[in-house]
Every structure is written in C-alpha cells, then in structure tokens.
Write a protein that binds this DNA or RNA. Structure first.
Length: 370
RNA sequence: GGGGCCGUAGUUAAGUCGGUUAUAACGCUGGCCUGUCAAGCCAGAGGGCGCGGGUUCGAGUCCCGUCGGCCCCG
C-alpha cells in the first residue's frame, strides 16, 4: 500500500504540519477537502479545482452506489478516470447518511437499511459492502460505515451506537483487501468526553491508517465541539493523520488546526457559494444583499482568485439575482480559493513557528470588521 | 346602437350562499446553511379590493352610476 503520513512539525500548542502520501499523489496538511458527493465538486471542473489550490477531494459511497452504481464506475476505470480527477480522493462511507436520512433508514447489527431518497428502493449498506464499493470506486482513502448519532442522544444510546460503530470498524478492517486503499477509523462517542476518549483508544488499539473524528458539528455548541475534539485527539497517535469530519466554518478550521487536526471536509464553501454567501478575510458576505447593487469592489480586495480579480460585487449580485449559473461557478471558485488559501496560510504559520500569531490576527481581523 | 366579461400586493391570480386582522405563487428584503435528499430552507415587508354612491348589523362579494380594458351581435 502506498499510503503514508509524515509529521513534519508540531508547535507548542499542538498545531501540526504534515505530509500525506497516497496512490494518487501527496499533499501537505493541514488540508481542506472540498465535497464532491456525486463525483463532482458542484460547478467546478477538475482543472478549476487544481487552479484554486485543491489537493484532495471527497466523494460519497452512498450516492455513487445508488447512481450510477459502483460497478459502472469500476468498469470505466474507477473514479479518478471517470471524473477526470487524478489527485487523491477520499470517499465517505454513507455513515453520515445514516444521520441525515434518518427518516429513511433502519439500523441493526448487520448494517443500515435505506429507502433510496431517489426512488424509494430498499437496500442495505454493511461494513463489508461499503468497503467493497469504495474499493471498486478506486478511492485512495476509505471510511468505514459508522453511526453518526444525533447531538441530543443520551448516554445509553450513545454508548450502544459507539460500540456498534467500533464493531463495524473492525469488520471493515477485516473486509479490506491487503493492498487496498487506506482505511481510517472513526471516533464517535457523542457529546461525552470520556466516551470520546474510550472510542479513540479502542480504535487506536485496533490500528488504522488514520483517525477521523465523526459525529461533531451536528448542532452542538461550539465549546462542546472543541471539548470533544480535544478529548479524542488526546488519545490519537502523533504519527497518524487526524481528520475532523464535516467541519466547518473558517473559524472552526483555525481552531481545529490548533487542536492538532490535519484534515477537514465540509460542504460549507460550496453550498454557501451556491446559496449566495461568500467567505472573505473580513468575514461572511451575503452577495445577494441589496447593498451590493452598485458596489464596484471585488468580493474580497485582498483575494487573488479569478473571481475577485475580474468581477465586481455588483456583477456577482446581479448574476445571483438573475439565477445565472455563472453566479454559482464564480462564487464556488472564490469560496474554495478562500478555504485553500486559509489552509496554506496555516501550513506556513506552523512551518514558521507563528501559528499563535496567525490565530490572533485571524480572529482579530474578524472581530475588528464585525 | 344592443349585449356580455374583467378590473383584488410590484406581477399573475384565488376569494364559496355577504360574516374575525383579504389568500397564494413569483418578485422584493433579511437571516440561515458544518462527513450535500440542499441552484436549498426559514422569516419579513407589501394591498383594503378601479372610482363614487346605495342596501345591510356587516360589502372584495349584492344594487346603481362612472372610468378603463376585452369580446360578441348589429
């Protein structure tokens, strides 16, 4: 297997600089992975992703299994060839859909039975077939099936759910081909710090190529999310990559890196772009607001992206209000550029022993412009 | 000349046999979006019913007149 992680540097607070190697190339961490659920990061071509600085993307097992079907993709040479993205790909297992499509599924020891959100057809995801599907897709990093419990889950439910997730993780590991992709373990444990520690320790004992922290940013308070992150990280090995699943806002990313997280993914930059919210060095900007009707300035005067280099807020607002497809493209391009640039800034800060200063100026600027 | 239909938010319409603060959609304004069921979701503002009379306890709903638009017959 060609997967590897090298920890290049760690600062006193815990922020890390690292390097992940996969079968489809290497990338520096901390890294942000845009979400390309259905084998496309919505509105962007792979070339455009590369140009904005994207290193690795995420795709979804559940969605691709339903359509077009993993065997179709396998027959066409795998996901990389199919979608023309030659960089690393991480696939999520469908575990999040256990949570987000909770009204359409049933969980038992064997796995999760869904009614397809597309046509209602019933089918079952198990730890084993989830691994099989992800291997067929040709993913570089695969995730085991897990249960992402709701934020309000009580301790009894959470313990049961966590233990089930652990058993599924072991079954996933057993199902994986020897020379297959990298497999991460997913720490669960809800909003209970001791369960988070227990979950991390259990998975580390079993041994995985990397460790993800799942089940966060599901509606809990920010400080709870932080506490859970720290509780899990505490028991994760230095020499393995850590992935905080589904997170988050720019502020979350900075705090996550400080907590020692190496990888992140989130729909926020892409979805918010399509819904008219842009991220800037001065905070969020809702481009559809009427105050931008005649604003000739770029979205973020400090941004070097294609959108900011060529178009005014007034034009972007016009495109958005008119429902033009280009609005979503230009907005997505900007947000992804902002996110990847933020990660590169943090990499540089850790490399130069200046992460503390970076964090201070990052939050200072948001506060000053708020 | 005769007959008929239609005028209700910015727009297009719904308003039962007259009965609380006149509906909806789109548009507009604002907010939200965290391992994508998401070009999505939530909320808000906005009209007193073409105009003038009348009947009635009560009129967008009924009657009369009038203005505007459309249609049919001469």
């Amino acid at each position: 297997m060609s997967f590897g992680f090298e920890l290049l540097k760690k600062d006193e607070a815990g922020a890390r600089l690292g390097r992940v190697t996969t079968a489809h190339g290497a990338f520096t961490t901390p890294v942000f992975m845009p979400v390309g659920t259905k084998a496309t990061v919505k509105t962007m071509t792979p070339e455009e992703l590369e140009d904005t600085g994207v290193d690795i993307i995420l795709a979804n097992t559940y969605h691709l299994y339903l359509r077009p079907g993993h065997n179709v993709i396998k027959d066409l040479g795998g996901l990389h060839s199919f979608m023309n993205w030659q960089g690393p790909i991480l696939t999520d297992s469908g575990g999040f859909q256990v949570f987000s499509l909770s009204n359409l599924r049933k969980i038992d020891e064997r796995g999760v039975t869904f009614n397809s959100h597309l046509d209602g057809a019933r089918y079952t995801l198990t730890p084993e077939n989830t691994v099989e599907v992800q291997e067929a897709l040709g993913s570089d990093i695969i995730m085991p099936l897990d249960e992402c419990a709701p934020s309000g889950a009580d301790r009894e439910y959470t313990v049961r759910s966590m233990n089930l997730t652990h058993r599924w993780a072991l079954r996933s590991k057993a199902a994986k081909r020897e020379e297959g992709p990298a497999l991460f373990g997913i720490v669960q444990g809800g909003m209970f710090a001791d369960l988070r520690r227990e979950s991390a320790a259990t998975l580390v004992e079993a041994g995985f190529d990397g460790y993800a922290i799942g089940g966060l940013s599901v509606g809990e308070e920010k400080d709870v999310m932080r506490e859970m992150t720290y509780a899990a990280v505490e028991h994760l090995p230095e020499e393995s990559p850590r992935y905080l699943m589904g997170v988050g806002t720019p502020e979350d990313l900075v705090l996550g890196v400080e907590a020692g997280i190496d990888m992140f993914d989130c729909v926020m930059p892409t979805r918010n772009a399509r819904n008219g919210t842009l991220f800037t060095s001065g905070g969020k900007l809702v481009i559809k607001n009427s105050r931008f009707e005649r604003d000739p300035e770029p979205v973020d005067p400090e941004c070097a992206c294609y959108t900011c280099s060529n178009y005014s807020r007034a034009y972007l607002r016009h495109l958005f209000m008119a429902g033009e497809i280009l609005a979503m493209r230009l907005n997505t391009l900007h947000n992804l550029y902002y996110y990847t640039a933020l990660m590169k800034d943090m990499q540089r800060a850790v490399r130069e022993d200046a992460f503390g200063d970076f964090k201070k100026s990052f939050f200072g600027r948001l506060a000053a412009l708020a």
